[in-house]
Structures are given as structure tokens and as C-alpha cells.
Amino acid sequence: MTDEITKEIFDYLVDLGALEIGEQEGEYLRSELNGQLRAIHELEGIAIDDDIRTTSHGIPYSRVIRAPLREDRIEPCKESDEILAQAADVFERYIVVPDIPSEELE
């Protein structure tokens, strides 16, 4: 059975997903992905009329159940110290990160 997700496609997905994956783990994950795709292909056997709509949630969000949007209101964040304390590297309440790679645009 041919693998739809080839090594090249897999490596591209790893790059897109901002991951790094070793060879052994990569072979396992690629094999699982191809197994899942084979299961997904079962969906191709269903006739779908053009008028079947897609759903964003199972239940329809009619006007009756849709919650009104919150009013825009500025509120102080009471937990800012707690939130900043979660960051691995902070300097004077700024989160520190390594160099941000950039490239010159033509």
C-alpha cells in the first residue's frame, strides 16, 4: 500500500508544525498518519449533495440561544503578576525571547 504522506510531505508538515522529530519517532508518526488517512478515505464513499451545508458546531446557533456579545469595556488585569510569573524569562516586566529571525523583503 503506497503511503500518501511521503517522507518529503512529512518533513514539510514537521516544519509547518514548528516541530523537530527524530528519524525513529518520525517513521512511527508517519505510519500512524497514513493509517489515519486510510480511515479518512472512507468519507469519500458518501454522496454529498451540493446543498448540504457545513456546520461550525453540531447545534445551530439560532438567535434564541446565541449569547449577546459583551460590552467593550476596559478593565485592569488583576492577575498580571501571576501571569508574568509563568514566563521562563522576564526582564522588567517584558518577556525575553532569543533573536527573532528576519529576512529582507525585496
Partner: peptide, 23 residues
Amino acid sequence: NLRELYRKTRAHGFGSQAKLRIL
């Protein structure tokens, strides 16, 4: 750089099921 930080953090921080879902 930051991109490498992302990759290494996610590579070491996520287990295989999370990686499968991302991919």
C-alpha cells in the same frame, strides 16, 4: 533564534499524540 526555541520546546514538550494531531 526564536524559531529554534519553538521547535525544540514543542519537540520536547509534546508527546506523540499531540504531534500526530498537529501533523
